[in-house]
Design a protein around this nucleic acid. Structure first.
Ligand SMILES: [Mn+2]
Ligand SMILES: [Mn+2]
Ligand SMILES: [Zn+2]
Ligand SMILES: [Zn+2]
Lengths: 141, 141
DNA sequence: TGTATTATTGCAACACAATCGCATTTATTT
DNA sequence: AAATAAATGCGATTGTGTTGCAATAATACA
């Protein structure tokens, strides 16, 4: 179920009429390399050839629509985007009911592996989940 | 451990050199009446005598500092403030490791009672938690 | 390979939540 | 009643993300 980036982009090109551009490749590579969730400003510094802010957001949101990436709102008010790696799969597709951890020292945001159990009161229906934890990662003690 | 609002404000006046004002009373009453987490704009509509935006935020943040209220960042990008009712108590004071639920229909934001277990990888330290669930509440089907 | 189509981009303007500086007001103390 | 400084209102500012639009360029197809 793990495909490489080129394959995924090609798939999107056909299915969603996307085009393969340098911006998309750059952003996808940065996400892959970082192996963590990235915010717009993180991407801006990570990518060599400058890309406009609006473009970065548009690319990221298109990745979300296409299922390559998921978005989570950090407790710092920023959106973070991560490649869909070990997202839990179920009958409707794959879902993102996992926590995200942000290290207050190094800033890295990671998807935590454990799938979160969501304790809804009876009669409530579920639509979306966003769980953020902050602290310090093992590298930053 | 449940005190009434007047008592709490009086406590803050002495301990933190706060003053008891109409704005604070209004905001505290609105929170109490709503029995749910409120955002700035919700409060603005709920309170009769108009209070300036900056003042509302300042009052709410002072309430947070004083431990009367806790703040959570909604997935809609807004801050929600709720009276500290059944927040979990531990040796360091009380913590806010519970989910918040926002009904996509009526907009109400509630503190969910169940205390969340936070699955940190080994070597990671905990600082803060923000968990938001959206869906529909039992009233809105 | 050349041309048409239209997805994508950059730029500027915009929307929105929240904060800040500062002069003024006012709750509290004496 | 006067002094002190916390609290307020107003306007400006920050920060994040979106949108409109004309220009660009990736893709399809003859
Ligand atoms: Mn995913
Ligand atoms: Mn609390
Ligand atoms: Zn770290
Ligand atoms: Zn509802």
């Amino acid at each position: 179920m793990q495909h490489n980036r080129i394959y995924l982009l090609r798939l999107c090109r056909i299915k969603m009429k996307r085009r393969q551009t340098e911006s998309k490749m750059g952003i996808l590579n940065a996400l892959k390399k970082a192996n963590s969730a990235l915010s717009h400003d993180m991407l801006e510094t990570l990518i060599d050839t400058p890309i406009d802010r609006a473009t970065i957001y548009r690319v990221l949101n298109s990745f979300c629509e296409d299922g390559l990436v998921h978005k989570t709102l950090g407790d710092d008010g920023k959106q973070y985007f991560a490649l869909c790696g070990h997202c839990a799969e179920n009958e409707h597709g794959h879902n993102h009911t996992h926590f995200h951890f942000r290290c207050l020292n190094c800033g890295k945001v990671e998807c935590l592996k454990s799938d979160v159990h969501i304790p809804l009161p009876t009669g409530y229906t579920f639509e979306n989940f966003n769980g953020f934890i902050t602290g310090r990662c093992s590298i930053c003690i």
